[in-house]
Nucleic acid binder design. Structure first.
Lengths: 147, 147
DNA sequence: GCGTCAAGTTGTACGGTGCAACGAGGCGGG
DNA sequence: CCCGCCTCGTTGCACCGTACAACTTGACGC
């Protein structure tokens, strides 16, 4: 395989992955869509942020984020805290319930991935992980991915 | 990084990728959604197949495929050929227009990937490609992916 | 021939998304 | 001080992709 072929393969396989991920999203965890999951995950990592930050980070329209946030709040997984100094701003935080659900889903996703990767030698796992990080780190938001 | 961390990382990065891919799908190629693209690609690779085969391959409902196929046919990108011996069966084929569009989109996607991967040393590219193939090959359809 | 199975279509509903229009609140220059 | 402009967020609307269920048509075996 030369570099050209490798790029072709990466493109094709990333596309297949994206395609399947979308198709199967939500089957494992009907209680939490892929979108909601990543949003909650970002809230946990960031320790709370604004809807606008989520929209920028995931290249989503602010209206989409607004609706997702509304749904998550209705489900009791996140809460909004009005900013004292700027009344336009709502800082979003995970509730205990949100943290709990997020942990559960992460756990079951982790189990599925473990099973899938069980046969892999450890050095391969580590390299694969490193490649994915490198790939995703490129250029921040607004990049092509498999779109 | 130990094996456990590597699995965690692969899970998280695959999820990020899937999430972004979905968000940005269609922006680069408004003329051909990610779904249509993969369907056309499969038709090219397979040299023609049935709607049921597409549904099985991508773990989609047959109704979904039926509608996609209808749309692609209306756009003149594919054609249906009735099977002579089994009248229930429609074998789907790319039209010249379909082949042409597919080639264009593949070309521009390829360019985006090349740019994104330009800095990578060749051995890394090849290993990354191999890992992705290995990952996607696991268990065929109905597997968790990042869902 | 009749039941059963397979391929595909259609009705219906839902979730996620973007765009446009709008409302509410902050900020800075006349 | 007030007015215009910006930012954050919500809402109305439309669209796409998807699933499930019911149905039609055709093949196959007993």
């Amino acid at each position: 395989m030369d570099a050209g072929e490798a790029v072709e393969t990466i493109q094709r396989e990333m596309t297949v992955f994206a395609r399947r991920a979308r198709a199967s999203a939500g089957r494992l965890h009907p209680e939490l869509s892929l979108v909601s999951y990543t949003l909650l995950g970002h809230l946990e990592d960031s320790g709370g942020c604004r809807a606008t930050d989520l929209a920028a980070h995931y290249a989503l329209d602010k209206s989409t984020v607004s609706r997702q946030v509304t749904a998550l709040e209705r489900s009791g997984l996140i809460e909004r805290r009005q900013d004292r100094t700027d009344h336009r701003v709502q800082v979003l935080h995970l509730t205990d319930a949100g943290r709990s659900i997020l942990a559960q889903v992460t756990q079951s996703r982790r189990a599925a991935f473990r099973e899938r990767l069980a046969e892999w030698p450890e050095p391969d796992l580590e390299r694969f992980a490193e490649y994915l990080v490198r790939y995703n780190a490129w250029g921040g938001s607004g990049t092509p991915d498999a779109g």
